[in-house]
């Protein structure tokens, strides 16, 4: 990383651009810290898409009908496509630092680069594939919708393509969940169980509620307009949108305290176990190691083919 002192006037001029709502391009001068925060966020987002394909990927060959097989293949393909877009944006930010896609993936495998907490969870039934597409993608679109107003233009251009596809993903998930909800007692049961399994992960999805001592990353991201809303604002939005729909399918979120407090104007919910959250993001979740091993193994075994592609 650049170690020489940055000209404070230059930094100030950059921050004024941000405040004027200007969009930053890859070749614009930017403070090293802005670049660092972007890489952190976009690389994490990119590898989360790649790793996020894996829980659903388990259900691709097993999807119940020919039609579902086609649809889930298209859905998982899109997730990898989102990974491609985001990783390309991250690569262009890493290039001035002499780093490439390989470095980024090596960081994933070594644990230096984290992937999203939600993708460390097991998906043991077909209903899990439905809950992921409906609710995990539903949560993701709330974050990504916010990020469309990010100050970094290449990220926004990638997100525009991504958000366009998320509509299909959610409806694909809704369709699976609705079929199970309308189905046999054992189908309904598997759906309720999948919801219960994913509920803590969904509550953790947006990260802990900000306190007065928001982390320096969070503060920096808000200052740079890389993100524009707090974790808690996003979680509240998710609950407002999805709790009524979940209940309308006869499903019960596994949180007896969950209700909307009309006076405060916000959802009250049971806090998930944030210590567990920290373990998960440090690759100590139930499926963290298995998924990293799967991805790493196939990545290494495919190296010879990439080497052929990379040759002049």
């Amino acid at each position: 990383m650049e170690t020489e002192r940055e000209d404070p006037e230059r930094v100030e001029a950059f921050l004024q651009r941000i405040d004027r709502g200007e969009r930053i391009e890859a070749d614009d001068w930017m403070p090293a810290d802005y670049r660092r925060q972007l890489i952190r966020l976009i690389a994490m987002h990119g590898v989360s898409e790649i790793m996020g394909a894996l829980p659903e990927k388990e259900w691709v060959p097993k999807a119940p009908t020919l039609y579902r097989k086609l649809a889930i293949m298209a859905k998982v393909q899109d997730e990898i496509g989102h990974g491609q877009l985001l990783i390309r944006v991250a690569e262009d930010l890493l290039a001035p630092l002499g780093k490439t896609r390989e470095d980024l993936l090596d960081d994933l495998f070594s644990g230096r680069l984290k992937f999203h907490n939600v993708f460390h969870m097991p998906a043991p039934t077909w209903a899990d594939a439905g809950i992921i597409a409906w609710l995990v993608d539903g949560a993701a679109i709330i974050t990504q919708g916010m990020s469309l107003s990010s100050s970094y233009a290449p990220y926004v251009r990638a997100l525009q393509r991504i958000v366009e596809e998320e509509g299909f993903h959610i409806q694909h998930g809704e369709s699976i969940c609705m079929a199970l909800a309308e189905g046999s007692p054992s189908q309904r049961k598997s759906l309720q169980e999948a919801l219960e399994r994913w509920w803590p992960a969904l509550m953790m999805f947006f990260g802990p509620r900000e306190t007065d001592q928001a982390t320096s990353h969070q503060q920096a991201n808000l200052r740079y307009r890389i993100r524009t809303k707090t974790n808690e604002e996003l979680r509240q939005r998710f609950l407002t949108k999805y709790v009524p729909r979940i209940r309308s399918l006869g499903l019960v979120p596994p949180d007896p305290t969950l209700h909307f407090d009309a006076e405060k104007g916000e959802w009250v919910y049971q806090q998930p176990d944030w210590n567990w959250f920290r373990q998960i993001i440090n690759n100590q979740g139930p499926r963290s190691q298995a998924r990293l091993t799967l991805k790493h193994l196939t990545y290494e075994e495919g190296r010879w083919a990439r080497a052929v592609l990379a040759q002049a």
């Binding site: 293949m73 298209a74 990898i80 491609q84 083919a305 990439r306």
Partner: peptide
């Protein structure tokens, strides 16, 4: 379809996924 998510190159993973879908669609 078993290759999905495991392709040797990210861009290739996506291209081969389309081929898998085509074949399943033909079936």
């Amino acid at each position: 379809s078993e290759w999905l998510g495991l392709g040797v190159h990210i861009e290739e993973d996506i291209a081969f996924a389309s081929i898998a879908q085509d074949e399943m669609g033909h079936a």
